[in-house]
Design a protein around this nucleic acid. Structure first.
Lengths: 148, 148
DNA sequence: TCAATCGGTTTCAATTTAAAACTAGACTGA
DNA sequence: TCAGTCTAGTTTTAAATTGAAACCGATTGA
């Protein structure tokens, strides 16, 4: 039974996000969901996670409104887990993680999977925050304005 | 003594990234580092994390090349933890998490901290992956090309 | 209908985390 | 220089989480 800590209610959106998806499995479940995985057993085989943990994480993600369950689309009596709108809007998070990993976590020449535009087959360009204009915003050029 | 699991060496960059920063504290440490925090005690007070865990995570982040230590800039004999280039390039990840949290994890009207352009004071626009052109790339329009 | 599969839940040992106490070097003020 | 305090950890111990495996009822396939 998933022990939930005193539900992060601070003002920092990063902290709240981390509270929802900031563990090893949740993010990988979401990644797989973007790849089209939606059945319990498929997540389990893909991730190699223990069933009880998977069960717990799926429940948490459903509770958080990231996934929802619906009857299986393939006629069987089982249900499937699909991304909600909220879940789909995690796309930039997963892409950012992917791009960081691609850049920094592979030896030169080491092969890795690639995210491409389905239509054109072209790799997705590097994503970065922009200032109001079109220039890339560097870390030093932004600051967190705490609420007054 | 930080037990590291068999070091994720799969082809998925998301999995490798999650392996490095995919836990509650690491990401928040990086967030604080972007905000200018660099001393052990400051991280500790900011996060409320147990000292041994902080010690462990800082060591891991240094080992992963996300942070590095250097003598304190303020004359004292202590050292400080600062983001490396690799660490700084986590900026899009933190921004993506922040923007997702802002959108989905606050009640309407609830206040939260804000990321603004230092120069103009303007909030940072929402960040999204683009296809080769300038149109926002939606989750369904991309796919992961596994390495051949 | 009988065996295998699916989607879990339960159990229990092992790992990880958290809290607190402890250590040790650096600074402070008297 | 001596006591007290601050910083940056480490150690110790208990509590929480995780993972592996067994279990279970419903579903499916032969």
């Amino acid at each position: 039974m998933s022990r939930r800590k005193p539900a992060n209610d601070g003002p920092c959106p990063v902290a709240r996000s981390v509270d929802v998806i900031g563990d090893r499995w949740s993010l990988l479940i979401v990644r797989d969901a973007f790849d089209g995985t939606n059945r319990f057993g498929d997540f389990q085989r893909s991730l190699g996670v223990a069933r009880n943990i998977l069960s717990d994480r799926l429940r948490q993600l459903v509770e958080a409104g990231v996934l929802e369950t619906r009857p299986a689309s393939d006629g069987t009596a089982y249900k499937e887990y699909v991304l909600t709108e909220r879940g789909k809007s995690l796309f930039p998070v997963v892409v950012a993680l992917r791009q960081w990993g691609e850049r920094h976590l592979f030896a030169p020449g080491e092969r890795h999977s690639r995210l491409v535009d389905k239509k054109t087959g072209e790799p997705i360009p590097f994503m970065a925050p922009k200032a109001g204009s079109d220039d890339e915003l560097l870390p030093g050029e932004a600051e967190v304005r705490k609420l007054t």
